[in-house]
Amino acid sequence: MNLTTLTRTARIAVLLTATAAGSVTRAGTPAELLAGYAAQGTEAPSPKAGQQFFNNRHGREWSCASCHGAVPTQTGKHASTGKPIDPLAPAFSVERFTDAAKAEKWFRRNCNDVLGRTCSQAEKADVLSWLLTLKPGM
């Protein structure tokens, strides 16, 4: 085995490890996802800022609340198709924010619709920190 082959083998090993790690982080808890978003910001996540961000419009027609409702503890409704949307707050819909890739996909689509850009990690952290304060019986 020459050096080039060795390097290639090592590179593949690194790739495989990264892929395996990626699939491990896919399943998680909302708290873990929040920690991941928060780790990339400089300030602690703010539920209050998250609530405002969620309910404000950002220069476009829709806010997050347009589809999810102002307090997303109940079934929402897609603003153009009318299709029901499961509650966004994790305490009311167990699958929410348990799959990092799925959460990323929806942030990508929906932030583009609401803001015309991607959301920052800090914005995601703020919103999720607010969603995690929403509990039954409040």
Partner: peptide, 12 residues
């Protein structure tokens, strides 16, 4: 899909 009837519906 990036401009899907007014929304971003992109998939991987």
């Amino acid at each position: 899909l990036n401009q899907h009837f007014g929304t971003d519906a992109t998939v991987d």
